[in-house]
Simulated assay, not measured.
Amino acid sequence: MDIKEIIQRTNAFLMEEFEADPAKISPEANLKSTLELDSLDYIDLVVVIENNFGFKVNPEDFQSIVTFQDFYDYVAHRVKQKALV
């Protein structure tokens, strides 16, 4: 799975699950404020990621995720790790 496919899949479920405005989703946008995430939303986001990409998310990993690009890179890295196992 390449980064373009990851971005497309990620944006699709963000728009569906979190009713995100596609016009506001950009690599440099702040993930938390754009999606208006609270602590419960983060739990939902973890579940959606695990279901869509098939890997377990460590909650502490979100501490370093600020932008959508950070999020895409995280998912891409974890998908790549999963493929190597």
Rank of each mutant, 00 (worst) to 15 (best):
V75M: 07
K24L: 15
L14D: 00
R9K: 10
S39Q: 05
Y42M: 12
F71H: 00
D70V: 06
T10E: 02
A83R: 11
E19V: 08
D70W: 00
V57I: 06
Q69T: 07
A76M: 09
N52T: 07
R78T: 09
I43M: 14
V57H: 01
A29W: 07
L35D: 03
Q69S: 04
D73P: 00
A29R: 05
M1H: 05
F68C: 01
T67H: 02
K80S: 14
D44W: 12
I3V: 04
G54K: 07
L35T: 03
I65E: 00
D61C: 01
D21S: 13
S26Y: 14
T34H: 04
A20S: 09
R9Q: 01
F68P: 01
E16W: 01
D44K: 15
S33R: 11
H77P: 11
H77F: 15
D38R: 10
E28G: 09
Q8H: 10
M15H: 03
D2M: 04
A76L: 12
A83D: 14
R78A: 13
S26I: 14
F71A: 01
K24T: 13
I65C: 00
V48Q: 15
F13K: 00
K82F: 13
D41C: 12
E60C: 08
P27F: 08
E28P: 07
V46W: 08
E17C: 10
Q63I: 12
E19T: 11
K4C: 03
K24A: 15
F13A: 02
D70F: 01
F18C: 01
I65K: 03
S26D: 13
V85I: 15
E28C: 08
T10I: 04
V48I: 14
D73A: 08
F62I: 04
V66M: 05
E28R: 12
K56F: 11
V66F: 08
K4Q: 06
S64D: 09
F55R: 10
E16C: 00
D2A: 05
Q8I: 07
L14N: 00
E19N: 15
R9T: 07
V47N: 12
I65V: 04
K24H: 15
Q63P: 06
M1D: 02
N58I: 11
L45E: 05
P22K: 10
A12F: 03
